[in-house]
Simulated scan of single mutants.
Amino acid sequence: MSLPTGDTEAPEPTTAERIHSLLSTTSSLAVRALGEHHHLDTPVSVHGSRLRLRTALDDPLTTAVAGAGAGDGLAVVLDVTDVSPVAVRDRVRARLTLAGRLHLAHLADDGLSVHLRVDVAHAVLATPYGTGAVTAADLALAAPDPMARHEAAMLTHFADDHAEALDILTRLLDPAVLVHSPEVRPLALDRHGLVLRLDHPHGHRDVRLVFPEPARDTEEFGHRMHELLAAAQYGLPVHRH
Rank of each mutant, 00 (worst) to 15 (best):
P237H: 11
E183A: 11
G235L: 05
R185C: 00
A33P: 06
L178C: 01
L196N: 06
L173M: 05
H241Q: 11
T63Y: 02
L40T: 02
G222Y: 07
L104I: 04
E183T: 08
A87Y: 01
P43C: 04
D160V: 00
D199S: 00
D138Y: 02
L172M: 08
R32H: 15
P214W: 10
E9L: 15
V120E: 04
G48R: 09
R32S: 13
D217V: 09
L98K: 04
A140W: 01
L228A: 07
D59T: 05
V114I: 12
A148V: 06
G111R: 11
L51Q: 03
T131H: 06
A232I: 08
A153I: 02
A136I: 07
A123G: 11
V83N: 05
H47L: 09
A188M: 03
H180T: 12
P214E: 13
V195R: 07
L198M: 11
T131Q: 15
A64C: 05
R216I: 12
E164A: 13
R89L: 04
D109Y: 01
L107D: 09
L3I: 02
T55N: 10
R95H: 03
P212M: 05
L96K: 10
V124E: 11
L34V: 15
H241T: 10
V80I: 14
G69S: 09
L22C: 03
S45M: 10
H47E: 15
L98Q: 09
M225Y: 03
E213K: 09
H157S: 13
D206F: 07
R216Y: 07
H38F: 15
A66G: 01
A108F: 02
H39T: 08
V118S: 11
Y129R: 00
A126F: 00
P237T: 14
L166V: 13
A230S: 12
V207L: 02
G111M: 11
A99V: 12
T26K: 01
I19F: 01
H47F: 09
E213Y: 07
